[in-house]
């Protein structure tokens, strides 16, 4: 039982869900505006590398967060220019940026840290809630989580409110669903989409920053290992809402946590195939999009470049 729902597993779930949730939030913002951004993986990788690089060179963890975030935003800016202004194929551009991010970070990692990131780089601290120390379970789960885990949770709430409880959020959703309708009432479709794509890059980069500057303190080539894509899956499974994306991230993170805690465990003669747990996010997502598990419907204008009328 401890292996399935113990405080250790649940705490690990939160940790593992955090980078996924950041990417998923980024995905929600950009796709709600009508731009598909599969370069989230690359933005995350940028955040991870430039975050740890900044932590090492400046000696400041908060500055590292800022620089990591900026790096992801810059990569997203390329996507924004290509997909919003030039109306390029968003999948091709996204693929290219993912490969570019992998190449640039691996290249710089080799050139700068041929022998690995030195130890002793300043990292983001955990928030120690000592007053919870005595509380069973809860203390174990949230008593010592990193500040970025908390930031992710706060951002989920903030973005949920932004999207469904503010004027700007209303306009964002209108742009993603029916850009022409938004255009005819005077909403600037292009500007809305630009900001959304930039924000998505920044958010995904935070997930990357978490992996290096909060979690491991080191960098390896291709460190994000598909977490950006799991983030997209969480976005879809969470039906393009921040809270839904968080729930999906937690489900996916729980699967990851289980695959660690159940490693080598047997039921009778059968060793539990923990790796198969990791396929759950992807299978659930396919089933959700196909309408077999609920119906997950993307914004109507998602991935469709917008061209304003006028002759």
């Amino acid at each position: 039982m401890e292996l399935l729902i113990g405080a250790g597993v649940i705490a690990a779930t939160l940790r593992l869900a955090t980078p996924i949730a950041f990417a998923a939030l980024g995905g929600v913002i950009t796709e709600r505006s009508g731009v598909t951004n599969i370069a989230l993986e690359g933005c995350m990788l940028f955040g991870a590398f430039f975050g740890i690089l900044a932590a090492d060179k400046t000696g400041s963890a908060p500055l590292a967060v800022l620089i990591g975030l900026l790096a992801g935003t810059v990569l997203a800016a390329v996507h924004a220019v290509a997909s919003v202004t030039w109306r390029a194929d968003q999948i091709v551009t996204g693929m290219a940026l993912n490969i570019l991010a992998l190449g640039v970070t691996s290249y710089l990692n080799y050139e700068i840290y041929g022998s690995g990131v030195p130890s002793g780089v300043p990292l983001l601290p955990a928030l120690n809630l000592d007053f919870l120390a005595g509380v069973p379970f809860v203390g174990g789960v949230i008593g010592h989580q990193n500040v970025l885990v908390w930031l992710a949770l706060v951002l989920v709430i903030v973005l949920q409110l932004y999207m469904f409880r503010t004027v700007a959020g209303l306009r964002l959703r209108a742009v993603g669903e029916h850009p022409r309708a938004a255009d005819t009432v005077g909403i600037d479709v292009r500007r809305t989409r630009y900001w959304a794509v930039l924000a998505s890059g920044g958010l995904a980069a935070l997930g990357g920053v978490y992996l290096t500057v909060a979690d491991t303190g080191s960098f390896t080539d291709g460190l994000t290992n598909g977490r950006g894509f799991i983030g997209l899956a969480a976005m879809i499974f969470g039906r393009w809402t921040p809270v839904g994306a968080l729930v999906a991230s937690l489900i996916f993170g729980y699967g990851d946590a289980l695959s660690v805690s159940l490693q080598g465990v047997s039921i009778g003669d059968l060793r539990i195939p923990v790796q198969l747990l990791s396929t759950i996010p992807y299978l659930l997502t396919i089933l959700a999009v196909a309408g077999f598990v609920g119906r997950s419907r993307p914004p109507a204008a998602d991935g469709v470049p917008y061209e304003s009328e006028g002759h």
Binding site: L170, R173, A174, E177, R180, A181, V185, G186
Partner: peptide, 15 residues
């Protein structure tokens, strides 16, 4: 020129 998932009131005031 209406956004289908939004409400009547939201569509009326949009922008």
């Amino acid at each position: 020129m209406l956004v289908p998932p939004l409400t009547v009131a939201e569509n009326v005031v949009l922008g």
